[in-house]
Design a protein around this nucleic acid. Structure first.
Lengths: 149, 149
DNA sequence: TATTAAATAGTAATAATTACTAAATAGAGT
DNA sequence: ACTCTATTTAGTAATTATTACTATTTAATA
């Protein structure tokens, strides 16, 4: 067993719980990927996560990053956001919040809205399926792109 | 000038207006793609649109379908939806509505909610950018997938 | 009707994502 | 702590979605 690995994972015990709850093994790679997403507010894509983790864990593979974000997204542990072009982006902040997405540069910015949060899905949803994440997307052009034009 | 083409486009005069308003030429191909999206409630992907249009317009190319949905999305004429796997899906129904997206099969189903519609974006959005589309996504598992399990 | 910039068909190329396989390892059970 | 075994990983290879390119066509003007 890798001592450093254990130490890191122990440093964030919730991670083992999250994995256990979904029948996943709490590997060091998954921990690195998850915490990389947690600590960023920029909603990084797979490449950014990969490059960042390589600095401290040079052996990590691109495949692992892709596999991991896919499985975490399927389990509802992280959220996948599609900027509409280029790579998908991921967000591990699962507390109630929403996203502004710039249709020019792909920038994704969190915002919160008590008004949105207060609303629960309409009853008609039950006829479609079981909802587990309500998320408001506002598409538009960010101020930076607007001033460039 | 192609008579059949003109007849079809004339049959749906709003289309020429929409194109004109965005500096786009009102081509028959664009018309076919746009009306294919309009008449479907299944939020088809590019391949579905391509296959369907080929039946009546065998010369249409895949490239044209992709180019067209991209430009229409950029102009805000249609909405791109990312089911989280496989191809992106498109929706030409721009009246206020929202989407339930099944994380197992990718099914996208419209729903409406007066509660959601009533809310306007928080003022803080102005510091981020200019909003032009507010859209609620509910992710979950559809009843069909749930009963399979 | 002639002109011209924009759009299209038919690929080719690229980029994002997924699949494969041998080796490694987390977690369960001695 | 030590085995065992099903998962997971690294390191590619392969696939799939999407975009780019070029010669030709066409819509929208004058």
């Amino acid at each position: 067993m890798n001592t450093v690995a254990s130490k890191n994972i122990i440093a964030f015990p919730q991670f083992a719980e999250i994995c256990g709850a979904h029948g996943l093994k709490a590997t060091q790679q998954r921990f690195e990927i998850y915490s990389e997403l947690l600590k960023s507010t920029a909603h990084p894509d797979t490449e950014t996560v990969y490059v960042e983790i390589r600095k401290r864990m040079p052996s990590i593979s691109f495949d692992t990053v892709y596999r991991t974000v896919r499985v975490l997204e399927e389990k509802g542990v992280i959220l996948r956001i599609d900027p509409g072009f280029e790579r998908a982006r991921y967000d591990a902040n699962m507390s109630m919040h929403h996203h502004f997405i710039c249709r020019k540069c792909g920038m994704i910015k969190d915002f919160s809205s008590e008004d949105f949060d207060r609303i629960s899905p309409p009853d008609a949803i039950d006829e479609i399926g079981k909802a587990d994440c309500v998320h408001v997307e506002i598409r538009g052009v960010c101020n930076k792109c607007k001033s460039k034009k």
